[in-house]
Amino acid sequence: MSGRDRAVLGVERRGWPGPGAKERAIRERLGMSPTRYYQLLNALLDDPRALAHDPVTVNRLRRVRDSRRRNR
């Protein structure tokens, strides 16, 4: 996993008071748009290296993603 991948998971691991704060942190800390961030994050959820690096965060996000897919 790259440093960028670890940083994306690190942002997701943290709790945020609201969506504006998270998007601002994505732009400032990672230097990317929120759209690109979520594209990378979604790809990481299917990467076994991300699961090995941070299983709690990856499994939580997989459950959220699966729940949203079922509700569509």
Results as ranks from 00 to 15, higher is better:
Trp16Gln: 10
Leu44Glu: 03
His53Trp: 11
Leu45His: 05
Ala7Val: 01
Ser33Trp: 12
Gly3Asn: 11
Pro55His: 05
Arg14Gly: 03
Glu28Trp: 03
Pro17Gly: 09
Glu23Ile: 07
Arg14Gln: 07
Ser67Pro: 04
Met32Asp: 06
Val64Pro: 00
Ala43Lys: 14
Lys22Pro: 04
Ile26Ser: 01
Met1Lys: 14
Arg4Ile: 08
Trp16Phe: 10
Pro48Asp: 03
Ala21Ser: 15
Leu30Val: 10
Arg4Gly: 14
Gly20Arg: 15
Trp16Ile: 02
Val8Arg: 00
Val56Tyr: 03
Val58Pro: 01
Arg6Phe: 05
Tyr37Leu: 02
Ser2Gly: 08
Pro55Lys: 03
Gly10Asp: 06
Ala21Gln: 07
Gly18Ala: 10
Met1Asp: 06
Asp54Val: 03
Thr57Val: 13
Leu30Gln: 02
Ala25Glu: 03
Ser33Lys: 10
Val56Thr: 11
Pro17Met: 13
Arg63His: 03
Asn42His: 13
Pro19Tyr: 02
Val8Met: 05
Asp54His: 06
Leu41Ser: 00
Leu30Ser: 01
His53Ser: 04
Tyr37Val: 00
Ser67Arg: 15
Arg65Gln: 07
Lys22Gly: 02
Arg4Cys: 10
Ile26Gln: 05
Arg65Cys: 06
Arg14Phe: 03
Pro55Trp: 10
Ile26Gly: 00
Met32Pro: 02
Pro55Tyr: 09
Val8Pro: 04
Asp5Tyr: 13
Leu51Asn: 06
Leu30Thr: 01
Met32Tyr: 06
Pro48Ala: 15
Val56Ile: 10
Arg36Trp: 15
Glu28Arg: 12
Ala43Gly: 09
Arg65Pro: 02
Arg65Val: 07
Ile26Tyr: 04
Arg13Pro: 05
His53Ile: 09
Val8Leu: 00
Arg13Trp: 11
Asp66Ala: 11
Arg14Cys: 06
His53Phe: 15
Asp54Trp: 00
Arg62His: 02
Tyr37Lys: 09
Ala50Met: 07
Ser2Met: 13
Arg63Tyr: 06
Gly10Lys: 05
Asn42Ser: 11
Val64Gly: 05
Asp54Pro: 01
Glu23Ala: 10
Leu9Val: 05
Arg60Asp: 00
Gly31Gln: 10
Leu40Phe: 11
Arg62Thr: 05
Leu40Ile: 14
Arg49Cys: 11
Gly31Asp: 11
Val8Gln: 02
Ser33Ile: 09
Gln39Arg: 08
Arg27Cys: 11
Gln39Ile: 15
